[in-house]
Design a protein around this nucleic acid. Structure first.
Lengths: 135, 135
DNA sequence: TATTTACCCAGTTATCTGGTAGGTAATATA
DNA sequence: TATATTACCTACCAGATAACTGGGTAAATA
C-alpha cells in the first residue's frame, strides 16, 4: 500500500476546503463531521499541512483552516508526499543513505526506478481541481 | 510501500534460477547463500511459488527448484501478486466486500482506479527475461 | 473572563514485516 | 536398510507502522 488513510484524509480535507466559500475559515470540527473522520486524527494531519504552508490556520472563535491558493495550485503529489513522507513503492529507491548493498548489481533496480518516476509523474499531474471536477 | 522484501526476494530467486543451466535443480540453500537471503524465510516464499506452479520442486539429494518455463513466460506482475497478495496502491481499490462506504461519492476513487490499472499494466509488461537482459 | 479554536505530546491497539525454531515427508545414495 | 539431503509444515516472536485516543497548552475572539 502506497497511500494510507493519512494521505487520503489529507486529500479529502483539501477537496472539502476547496468547496467552501472563498476566504472563509473552516473549523476542523466541521470538516471532521462532514467527512466522518476522527477529529483528533485530523488534527495531526492538518498541523502538517499548516506547517508546510499548504493551508492557513487561524486560532480562536471564527478561526479554522482555509486554502491559500486556487485548487489547481495543489498537486496531489505535493500533498501525499507531505503526509506520507514518501511515495516510493519500494524501499530500494526510497532510502538514500541506507541504500541497498546490492544496488550496483541489482537486476531489478532500473525497474523500481522507472516505477518510481511513473508514480511520481502520475500524482504530480493531478491537482485538487481535477479531483473536484472529476477530470 | 507496494512491494516488500517478500516479493523482491521472490523476483531475485526467479532471476537466479533463470541463470542456472537448463533443467538442473538448485537447492534452496545455494540460492539463499548466493543471494544472501535468510534460508528459512525463503522457504516460505518458495513454497508459495511451488504451489502455484511457478517452479518445480524435487525433494531429496540432487533436488531443489527449477523454472518450468522460459524466463519470458513469467511476468513480474504474476510473481508479485502471488507473494504480495495484491499490488493495489490503496485499500480503496483492493477490498471487494469491505468496500469504502464513500465509494459512490468519492472524488478520488477514479484516480485510485487509474493508478491501479497503471501499476498492474506496468508489472505485467515486464518479464523475468527483461530483468535478466536489463531491457 | 469564558469560549472557541489550533497545536503539542504521550500512550494504545491491532496488524504487518521479516524473520526464527523445530519439526515431518520425500528422495537419493552408500 | 540406514543416512543424508532436500522440500515442506506449524508455530512463535520482536520490532515497526497505522490509526487512532486522551489530556493537555497556546492563541484569538466575544
Amino acid at each position: 500500500m502506497i497511500v494510507s488513510t493519512k494521505g487520503r484524509y489529507a486529500l479529502r480535507v483539501m477537496v472539502y476546503l476547496a468547496q467552501q466559500p472563498l476566504g472563509t475559515y473552516i473549523p476542523l470540527k466541521q470538516v471532521a463531521e462532514a467527512e466522518e473522520i476522527s477529529q483528533k486524527y485530523l488534527e495531526a494531519i492538518m498541523t502538517i499541512l499548516s506547517k508546510a504552508g499548504m493551508v492557513e490556520a487561524v486560532h480562536g472563535k471564527g478561526g479554522g483552516y482555509r486554502l491559500n491558493r486556487p485548487p489547481e495550485g495543489y498537486t496531489v503529489g505535493s500533498i501525499l508526499k507531505l503526509t506520507e513522507g514518501s511515495l516510493a513503492p519500494v524501499s530500494c529507491t526510497a532510502e538514500g543513505p541506507a541504500a541497498c548493498s546490492r544496488s550496483d548489481c541489482c537486476p531489478a533496480l532500473p525497474m523500481w526506478e522507472k516505477l518510481d518516476r511513473m508514480i511520481d509523474g502520475f500524482f504530480e499531474s493531478i491537482t485538487i481541481r481535477d479531483l473536484l471536477t472529476g477530470t
